[in-house]
Amino acid sequence: MDRSAALVPRRYVAIGGRGPEDVVADARGRVLTGLADGRILRLHGLTDAAAPRVEVLARTGGRPLGLELHPDGTLLVCDAERGLLRVDLDDGTVRVLADSVAGERLRFCSNVVALADGSVYVTVSSRRYPLDQWIGDLVEHTGTGRLLRLSPGSDTPEVLLEGLQFANGLAPSGDESFLVVAETGAYRLTRYWLTGPRAGHSEPFVADLPGMPDNIWRAGPEGPVWVSLAGPRVPPLDLLHRGTPSARRAAARLAVRAPFRPTGTIGVLAVDDDARVLHHLTRRRSGFRMVTSVCETAGHLILGSLWESGVAVCEAPAVKHPVT
């Protein structure tokens, strides 16, 4: 995965608020995102020459992170403060689907997907650190991330998988036989089998990534899985992770108090269901920092960021071939 192509930005679009952490495209090419102030936005015309239109759809009353367009036309929202929400896109009504799991408050849920059978799957990044101290979990390497399942009609998620290193982005395979889970703190994508002889088991899918995977997105069963890389690998952090738990905890206490500024190196990947890397796009010294999400629409890649006050519109690669 050493070879990469250029990630070419075409425009940066301010959207009137900070932290569009996740971006998803709908069937009409519009992009939905959530902001730090709790607003859910729909962005029209991002790839047009004219100025885009920003539409406020709802306010969650918390901090929306991962989004998923449900087949019934509503929007599923992972809210770091309120839990798993469902938003009616017609009138902006917000309903809590689940706010606890296994007797604990459901906080820092990160990403969500809905499958054809009506089940909903959710990642939880950390059981120890809240969103505003996310760096503490990456430094301490807590391994408290989870994968949850919410059955149709239920308001109580079940825990499918524990011990994940900052579980983050989530996407199904084309045939929905497995899920791909991003483990930000382990630089890897993990496969969790839903069907077949290995159902209920997990295994590495794409390991040793060149950066920290964040949200992941798939347009449909035929499209690739797009993976945002929130930051490059940090060798001192890799070394710390091999240290003692007490050393990691001490470093985490310092990290959550220290000022943070992301690097100017950004990147995205596209992989297929056979774990082949189709694209690896990077840009150094970028003015747009900390890419936490990516989606594709109208021949462009749209980048979201926990850090920025807008989105980036980039060229999408034209030819898809495995990177060796």
Score class of each variant (00 low, 15 high):
Trp217Thr: 12
Leu281Met: 05
Leu46Asn: 08
Thr244Gln: 10
Glu140Ser: 09
Leu281His: 03
Val311Met: 06
Thr93Asn: 09
Val112Asn: 05
Gly287Cys: 01
Gly220His: 03
Ser228Leu: 13
Ala98Lys: 09
Arg248Thr: 09
Gly200Ala: 06
Pro322Arg: 13
Phe288Leu: 04
Tyr187Cys: 00
Arg63Tyr: 08
Ser286Met: 05
Ala14Asp: 13
Pro157Met: 10
Val54Gln: 06
Ala252Tyr: 01
Ala252Asp: 09
Asp22Phe: 00
Val101Tyr: 11
His300Tyr: 03
Arg261Lys: 08
Leu138Pro: 10
Val180Met: 06
Gly196Thr: 02
Ala98Ile: 00
Leu237Arg: 06
Ser4Phe: 15
Pro204Thr: 06
Gly304His: 00
Ala270Lys: 08
Thr144Val: 12
Trp307Val: 10
Lys320Arg: 15
Arg249Asp: 01
Ala247Lys: 04
Arg39Val: 14
Leu85Asp: 07
Leu239Gln: 15
Asp117Met: 14
Ala247Gly: 14
Ser286Ile: 12
Gly61His: 11
Thr297Val: 10
Pro221Arg: 11
Arg285Ser: 14
Ser154Ala: 15
Leu106His: 08
Glu81His: 08
Leu229Tyr: 01
Ser125Trp: 15
Ala14Ile: 03
Pro224Gln: 12
Ile302Ser: 04
Leu254Glu: 08
Ala5Ser: 14
Val323Glu: 08
Gly83Leu: 06
Arg128Asp: 00
Pro322Asn: 04
Asp272Thr: 05
Ser246Ile: 11
Ala318Ser: 04
Thr142Leu: 11
Leu147Phe: 07
Met290Tyr: 14
Phe178Tyr: 12
Asp79Lys: 06
Leu303Lys: 09
Asp2Val: 10
Glu55Ser: 02
Trp226Phe: 13
Leu35Gln: 11
Ser173Arg: 04
Val13His: 09
